[in-house]
Design a protein around this nucleic acid. Sequence first.
DNA 1: TAAATTGTTCAAAATAAATAGAATAAATTG
DNA 2: CAATTTATTCTATTTATTTTGAACAATTTA
Lengths: 187, 187
Amino acid sequence: MVADNDSQKIEESRDILISAIAQTMVIYGVTPSVGRIYGVLYFADKPLNLDEIKDQVAMSKGSVSTGLRDLLDTEMVIKVWKKGDRKDHYIAEKDFFKNFFAFFTKMLRQERNIISRANEQVEGTLKDIAVNGDSEEAKEMAQGDLKDIEQTMTYFDWTLRLANAMESREIFEHFPKYKGDDSTGQE
Amino acid sequence: MVADNDSQKIEESRDILISAIAQTMVIYGVTPSVGRIYGVLYFADKPLNLDEIKDQVAMSKGSVSTGLRDLLDTEMVIKVWKKGDRKDHYIAEKDFFKNFFAFFTKMLRQERNIISRANEQVEGTLKDIAVNGDSEEAKEMAQGDLKDIEQTMTYFDWTLRLANAMESREIFEHFPKYKGDDSTGQE
DNA sequence: TAAATTGTTCAAAATAAATAGAATAAATTG
DNA sequence: CAATTTATTCTATTTATTTTGAACAATTTA
């Protein structure tokens, strides 16, 4: 049973790596359980169905279902069709660059939206006070706040450009995928 | 009382902006309360002490204290000394670029550490099986996992270079702070 | 189209996180 | 160095999130 010993060792190694992956995914805002679903799919050598995942992560069917939905939404997991099987099957998107860019661009866009909306909401009022305010003090306060808003928009213009460069992979022109390489990193 | 009306309008505008800031900070993993502390400091026209913050955010002294500690740890808030006052005073770091870079580099480093540690932990075992494994199947599995690990290290080398470029502000050479500008964005 | 299989939704329970406020510690002053 | 002020830590409570498991809906097959 030496071969079995090997596969057990591989199993243990994968468990360690799966835990690590799950832990890092917590940084990106998912629960450890969802992270573990991704980890299991990452090391699966074939597409897994809901029940197979459920057994491996030891969670309820419902939780796996909602967890998979999260992972599908963020495109970290892909649903695949398997001939001759009624069940849905899932595989992990193993390209960390892709996962990171997807997460990152979504995050920056969300942030930008929240702040932009608030800025638009107050800009009119502040501009009015800045010009027609009754006291010099009020005018100055409004002017100061408007300057702050302007600054944040400079920042968000920048993050938007960065996000676009990630989405288009243009970023690899400045930071090549492989050190010393100046290709685009496109495969 | 027209002037009072102005300052009330400014107050309301700031509340809207503070809420938006707090919301975006949630994306970055802090609680809305901690986000609000930062927001209040962001719009304060002078350094505030713990009691003043407490009154403005309507939280307990203890919670404000621990919230400030988080913000000090991530360098989003700075403690300043005010002459003739025993109390500690705090100001917000208003440079969003700085805040973002600090958050981002910390996050990537944390991620890298978790995965690197796990990789080191299993690399020996997998390498052994890849070479001396008893079954061809086990060998192939180990080789496949090692290839995955290698891929992740390529990815982490890249994120490290990106993080360094942010920390050194070299990133502004590729993505200038102001659109069309090719200066370093250094002030 | 009825029966069986698969997947999702949702209310209830379990778990985790955040907050308040009192107790404690630390610092400052006279 | 005692008294006072200020800040932090810690436990109990509240609040929010996650998870389960059963009910429901949708899909497939015979």
